[in-house]
Design a protein around this nucleic acid. Structure first.
Lengths: 135, 135
DNA sequence: GTGTTTGCAAAGTGTTTGCAATTTA
DNA sequence: TAAATTGCAAACACTTTGCAAACAC
């Protein structure tokens, strides 16, 4: 990878998002290393620790913009347990019930030979997601 | 089925829940006919329409008790979109994105020949749930 | 400069809880 | 009568929004 700064900046510009200080900081935290599952609060804390104070409102707004722009996926594990996933490829998840943590399952690891169609309506499948809860 | 009243009463007593007026009313609405996906608010409204006023707090508490007792399953579709499912057998769901409605997929309709194990921990799989979003 | 973005505080949504009053067994 | 349940209102966690100030281009 080139330097993180320009990598993030380019990602943002590609999607028509201005590379503001806040978006750059959050982007850098999200995309510094491999795939991540982060909650809004976690990211807010990380930003604070990195001396990049960003308000909670901005964290939420930014994460939603990133999701909208296709830069992140939202994963809802439970009521009040929402993660933002930097892995935007189709994939599945293990959920560790003890901790609430997630682990990605690459799409090709789960084969579903036949996907059924709904009875009631035309089938225009937009996604298939599998959650495997373990404890 | 015998009469609904005693059917519900028995269900409750079996799980150690007293058949109070409120629980009987909510149970009757839930189990009158085939399987249902109901939100707390929906059920609250239905109870009101059936002239069985039950407070919102009691609807929530009761639904949670029913889930705890294994009489219902909770299905979270989106942040702030939680359903209570009277189908307690293992199964999967279609989610209609337009309406947020659910349709059950019987477990045997979705075959996953090989379930992977998580990398990081011992695999003690408690459930596998598939959500197919359609629009 | 002009339009976009931010941060705050306030509002919103869906859900849970403390507690006095009521109901059930 | 003793223990469980209910309903209210308040509290809650998480998220969104309105708007003035700050920023990016």
């Amino acid at each position: 990878m080139v330097d993180l700064e320009s990598f993030v900046g380019q990602k943002l510009r590609e999607r028509g998002l201005r590379p503001t200080r806040q978006r750059m900081a959050l982007g850098a935290l999200l995309w510094a290393n491999g795939d991540r599952h982060v909650s809004a609060e976690q990211l807010h804390n990380e930003a604070k620790e990195a001396n990049c104070a960003v308000s909670m409102a901005t964290v939420y707004n930014t994460l939603n913009q990133f999701v909208e722009a296709g830069l992140l996926k939202m994963v809802i594990v439970d009521a009040g347990r929402t993660y933002f996933d930097t892995n935007i490829l189709p994939h599945h998840h293990f959920v560790f019930e003890k901790t609430g943590e997630l682990e990605d399952i690459p799409a090709e690891k789960i084969v579903i030979p036949h996907i059924p169609s709904p009875l009631s309506k035309e089938a225009d499948i937009s996604s298939v997601s599998v959650m495997i809860r373990v404890n």
